[in-house]
Design a protein around this nucleic acid. Structure first.
Length: 135
DNA sequence: CTTCTGACA
DNA sequence: TGTCAGGA
């Protein structure tokens, strides 16, 4: 249970995360407002997302692409220790939480990094930022 | 140049 | 959600 420290380590700034998740900064900031994620901040108030934050964001994205609204995402993606009282079955079918293993997550991120179009001028920033994760 | 907050023609 | 302003 020592990986949690690394997965919760504040590492990537907004730019990296938007490319990784394919979400807009607006959306990411909004999700934070909704309490879905709590990225750390630098001394300059810049957000620093952890591996877990990105994971979380990907789940949120997946959920919303399925037509789940913020309220729904909040319920489904219930906090680290939120006691799920009773009414937590708004979805009409069997979509249970998807526990991504670290390998799956790494593979997913690698795939996305390769699919992302490379802009002329600021290409492989991501590779450098994430290299430490791909042992 | 990148990101941040607040606001809405 | 997009986008612009004004600042850091």
């Amino acid at each position: 249970m020592r990986d949690s420290v690394r997965r919760n380590m504040p590492l990537f700034p907004m730019g990296i995360v938007t490319k990784l998740t394919e979400l807009t900064p607006r959306q990411i900031r909004y999700y934070e407002e909704q309490g879905l994620i709590k990225p750390a901040r630098t001394k300059g108030n810049q957000r620093l997302f952890s591996f877990n934050d990105v994971d979380r964001l990907l789940e949120i994205k997946a959920l919303m692409e399925k037509g789940v609204n913020i309220a729904g995402v909040k319920e489904v993606l219930s906090r680290p220790k939120a006691p799920l009282s009773e009414p937590v079955q708004p979805l009409a079918e069997s979509e249970s939480r998807r526990d991504l293993s670290e390998e799956e997550l790494h593979r997913l991120l690698k795939r996305q990094l390769n699919e992302l179009p490379v802009r002329p001028g600021q290409q492989h920033l991501i590779q450098g930022e994430l290299s430490r994760f791909f042992h």
